[in-house]
Amino acid sequence: MPLVFAGVCSHAPGITGRAHLADPAIRDEFYSHYHRLRGALEAAKPDALVVVGAEHFANFFFDNMPAYCIGMADFYEGPIEDEEWLGIQRRRIPGAPDLSKRLIARVMDDCDVAYAQEWKFDHGISVPLHFLTPRYDLPVVPVNINCQEPPLTPLHRAWAFGRALRKACDAAPERIALIGTGGISHWPCTPDSGTVNETFDRDFLDKFVNNRKDDLLAYTDEEVYREAGHGGFEIRTFIAIAAATEGATGELWFYAPIPIFAVGCTVATMSV
């Protein structure tokens, strides 16, 4: 049946791991929007959650890096990081292997995609789940777009992938919710960690919530790297969600640079 929910949120490890170092007022306001997103997600009564993320070498490495991968496991495990470091306890997360298989097959009509029957979630998926499905009772289908090191999939391919994913979700009988998770401008894990280009982010988010395809696809990697840092490559996850909700617009619920979280913290929804 048609997709029942779509949204985006940040996933930086500092959001949970360095929570105690943040200004409590802004942190708690940000968290309240994760909680609001959880409420909206639950109200849509999904049978499964598809998370489009950009993992960071937890599963995929330079020996065999897929541009796109969809999980097809009975269960997942995460976070892979030190539990104390991330502030999230490691656990098993239920998968939806049969649904995964059908989604993958359908996506393959339009886009080539790798699949994985073993997948350890890193903060890229564990942080969103920590807020959105804290009981870990909603089966998850993880989707990865390589946003870490070039060569990266071009933005127009991320769009095509998002469309294909939407077609696949709509063709399934299950009620599926879709969450994209990435950073916009940020320079994670480097000496520039904590820098955020708020102008870039707000401009990007304006294009995102208004679903202006041509503007979203006009960025070059060099421009993104210069203006938004290597973390900015993760705009691919937002672009996939915009494509999955092509023609619809969204609402930006929260945006604020929180330097100790090393990212412009974002929560937004898209109409489905």
Binding site: H56, F57, E81, D82, Q148, E149, P188, C189, T190, S193
Partner: peptide, 8 residues
Amino acid sequence: VNGQLLMH
């Protein structure tokens, strides 16, 4: 080394 590996 990529920071996503180095930080760990």
